[in-house]
Design a protein around this nucleic acid. Structure first.
Lengths: 355, 355
DNA sequence: ACCGATTGTCGAAGCGCTTCGACTAAGCGT
DNA sequence: ACGCTTAGTCGAAGCGCTTCGACAATCGGT
């Protein structure tokens, strides 16, 4: 392992000069810079991260605090991660993921108070997230992915649920649907104040009302069984329903199963649109699901850029940004009342869309 | 931020003594240790990771190199990660995940040659994985999750595919099935030499032969459509088939869809068993899938323990370990030829055009 | 009672880098 | 011509920790 000493010696300059070449903290002449760079290349020099971190009090590490619940990560999350990692890498930072949720605050405190993190991105943010307090206390810059209840003084990036729901409803209404039911997360989740569930609920009411339609929402457990039950309830309360908008990725499969059991065709009898769903999951269903695809990778990039802005210009300035999901029409939505016909991948009135 | 100086001063000892208390590198009397510890507590002291890393040439960071493909992470992977993180944390190490696949070798080289990693765990190992070469060259200890073609001198932990396939086949045979078809990954995947596909193929042949049965394998594309096609092919080649064993999580949903389309009940007409599938995914199907559940969390723990053994006793000793998936019987498997009656969720059979 | 080993502690020398102050040599306006 | 800023470089002082050698004190064993 070559050190900076070696490079300096070989280039015939002092170590501080080498350092300045690397960091750009002071002007260096073209000639010197060239000598230094070629010495580095010849020695295959790589700065030692620890030494650099110690001296500069900057680790060049960004933490991505990502709870890993049992149910795995959707493609949305992985897209987010890769987007974020690419952005970090481009800026000369490392992005390290740590499976730290609102529960494991201790581990976070360890990480942060050892001064390992220059900043942090929080995923799966709770309305009242203890991780925020820990990081603030240790004055580690942070950016939320999602939103806490009180976002004053906090930067975040999040999905624009209002816009997303509105676009989804518009899609169905434009196809001719009037009776649309919204299958949300479970009552418990809603009662617990889970942001996306609340925001989409309100957005759904607003969007439907805007079209002069009656907004019917049903809360479903996050499981296939929950979806089946939700669909039954939906038919009880609105026998004439022709479209389902589902927030709940697990329930969607139950909904489809129950629809099939009742001998109803998708989208001939009932159209189904899934929210915040990755293309990969959408393709699992038969027919493939028309869905609102989340802007995972863009969200990741923006989050990192925002965090970096905080880090190296730590004015108290804050940035709050929302990105909508984009509609991708696949086989599960079509005009109402065309049972037997429009099935499959049929011409469901293509809509421009894609990330 | 309190430093070690502060602690030493407050405890009335030298810094080296404080250090020895922390690292245990030399014996310290009970009395002194107590003084030091209480000084630490009072000052809320946390050692600075960078300084420690620089001085000791050990970062106490383990890298988990986890490719993040577009399709997201299964529950198996997340269980692995949490298991690994817990084990690392218990040993005083940090586990950082880096979305580094066989493609992004440069990023890995950066990470490793900056001496940031004390060791690495490689997920999604390819038969000939360039990451292994990079790490060896930089002499970073590593443990594979999975296996390369040549594992001499390499430690790994992996799923015991032989045992897993055998258990799955035994389950079906014991239920009375004779005609069992194995739906593997795609021909391309197999041709490319993907380990699990090859190993399960061979294990399937062995297991079936052991029962005096004819081993029929079909390679399916990794998609719902691939599953549908595979099932059609299966019926062409074995009209009397009564059970499907599927390796391919994406294809399973297509298989179920096609079964429903043909008006065949699961498990009344055909039993379906899924391999290496998480409970969460298994529950998505209707009926829920009987599946071989992978030992994700245990795998993670063992991998970390193995890696640590390498790190702090770097004899050339190697460890190679296999863990089987365990059978979890749900609704999709039952005795053959009991259409209408069988176990599971009951009459899941009518209705062309489900899912 | 004396030796060698062990236990317990300290001071000091780094680990490989950044960064501050100092210095030289130009370049500028006046 | 004068001081003054700016570009370009160097030496040295750390950053907060680990670890080595030294040394005093204690402890059997004979």
């Amino acid at each position: 392992m070559a050190t900076m000493q070696d490079v300096a010696r070989r280039a015939g300059v002092s170590v501080s000069t080498v350092s300045y070449v690397l960091t750009g903290a002071r002007p260096i002449s073209q000639a010197t810079r060239a000598k230094v760079l070629s010495a580095m290349a010849e020695l295959d020099y790589q700065p030692n991260a620890m030494a650099r971190g110690l001296a500069s009090r900057r680790s060049r590490i960004l933490g991505l605090l990502m709870p890993m619940d049992e149910r795995g990560l959707g493609a949305t999350e992985t897209a987010f991660v890769t987007g974020a990692a690419a952005a970090a890498s481009a800026a000369g930072y490392h992005l390290v993921l740590s499976p730290i949720g609102a529960g494991e605050v201790d581990e976070l405190r360890r990480l942060a108070s050892q001064r390992m993190l220059d900043g942090a991105l929080l995923m799966e943010v709770q309305l009242d997230d203890p991780r925020v307090d820990v990081l603030r206390e240790l004055s580690v810059p942070l950016v939320l992915i999602g939103r806490t209840a009180d976002t004053t003084g906090l930067s975040y990036v999040d999905i624009d649920f209002d816009r997303t729901v509105r676009d989804a409803v518009d899609h169905l209404v434009r196809l001719g649907h009037r009776r649309i039911v919204y299958v949300n997360h479970s009552p418990a989740t809603i009662a617990h104040g889970y942001g996306p569930a609340l925001r989409t609920r309100d957005a759904f009411v607003a969007a439907m009302s805007g079209h002069g339609l009656d907004p019917l929402m049903i809360a479903a457990e996050d499981s296939a069984a929950g979806g089946r039950d939700a669909l039954s309830e939906a038919f009880d309360r609105a026998p004439d329903l022709s479209a389902v908008l589902a927030m709940n990725e697990s329930a969607v499969f139950g909904i489809l199963g129950e629809l099939a059991r009742r001998g109803l065709a998708v989208p001939g009898d009932v159209s189904v649109v899934s929210m915040v769903t990755s293309p990969q999951v959408a393709e699992l269903a038969t027919p493939a699901l028309t869905a609102m695809t989340s802007p995972g990778s863009a969200l990741g990039r923006i989050a990192v850029e925002t965090l970096l802005r905080h880090i190296d210009a730590d004015s108290g300035e804050i940035y709050q940004q929302l990105l909508p999901c984009v509609l991708e029409v696949r086989g599960s939505s079509g005009p109402p009342g065309t049972a037997g016909g429009a099935a499959g991948d049929g011409p469901a009135r293509p809509t421009p869309g894609r990330t």
